[in-house]
Write a protein that binds this DNA or RNA. Sequence first.
DNA 1: TATTCTTTATGACCGAAACCATAAGAATGG
DNA 2: CCATTCTTATGGTTTCGGTCATAAAGAATA
Lengths: 198, 198
Amino acid sequence: MTVIPSSLLQQYGASLNRFAKGEYIFHESWPAHFYFQLEEGSIKMFNSGENNDYIQGLFSHGESFGEPPLIADFSYPADAKAVTNCKIWVLKKVDYLRLLRDNPGVHFEFTKMLAIRLCHKTKLLNAMNTQNPEKRILTIIDYFKNKVPHPSPCYEVPFTRQAIADMTGLRVETVIKKVLRLAELGELELLDHKIVRH
Amino acid sequence: MTVIPSSLLQQYGASLNRFAKGEYIFHESWPAHFYFQLEEGSIKMFNSGENNDYIQGLFSHGESFGEPPLIADFSYPADAKAVTNCKIWVLKKVDYLRLLRDNPGVHFEFTKMLAIRLCHKTKLLNAMNTQNPEKRILTIIDYFKNKVPHPSPCYEVPFTRQAIADMTGLRVETVIKKVLRLAELGELELLDHKIVRH
DNA sequence: TATTCTTTATGACCGAAACCATAAGAATGG
DNA sequence: CCATTCTTATGGTTTCGGTCATAAAGAATA
């Protein structure tokens, strides 16, 4: 699951930096200068609006984030913020590009990951633009359920109703109501307010 | 703008195939066996729903499409259909992967393209989930306006209201009404029903 | 343990976009 | 050239999710 082995990162000059809970790693519209890979903790990428936030992604141990602007020279399309205290491997852009050039296997795995992320966003765009709130919510839940192949058939959703709202473009009251409805319909189970998907 | 030179494609065994207007190149959920690059004509990638279609992308001369499933071994997340008569370079998956392996420069350009597409979908997800219909419409128009750097400051939108609806998740009547409103507000101009963006 | 903040819950009301019907102009094809 | 289909347009109606107000349970913090 780890994108690039830490030994290889260190070999190219990466350093392990700490970010406090709530701290921003970068902001929307900033130019990209570094490769980031989470060693510990988790971060969220999101667009902040006046009323709304929209969560673009959630990343934790072993995952890298914010690489596309590094590769194709554009500015960040979203903010990145530490959800918990984090330790993050940080590598300068030129060193990262050199690492990719020197290691075709790593480069190919990276391309593969972009392809998978693109497919995910493709499916999300379809779901969020054409489906009703219930389906949108299930789409998001099932994405995270299947992200890491789970041993148990049932998946305890690790998000608040507000987080689901911020990933589906809905309002928190709507998510609350639709989740109760989905539980009635048997699509979800509620165990002491925790959402469980089978 | 051409992704891979046709000479290189031929060197790896590509053939130039014809597709008639309206013909499908592939369907959602099919496994991916070929690399496709448009020599002539244009195609659309879209999800077809009961009432709704959702257009994921429009591609024309020089552009490739449907590569991510080839790279990361998943099935197509959408249909691809010829909008006009097309000539398309078709290359077998193994040969395409060999081409990428042998040509790091081509591989890097491909990675760059995925990064750009990912950024585009990120921006779309934000716009479509958090913005009002007017902003959604302008977001789509501006994307195509800026896709190829245009000499003239004004851009004649080459889409029907229905196509805009299918890219924004709105209904055609809504697009018609909001476009008229945007013209009143001066955000768009209407020349004989053609939409022009400055 | 008290207090504050977050999260879930509920109901009333409102408004914007969907839905539906209709029509006229434009483009396409036989 | 005529017939058919597509595209743009318009107005009436409905519906669903947003908005607002309120509250209680739970979690975090002092």
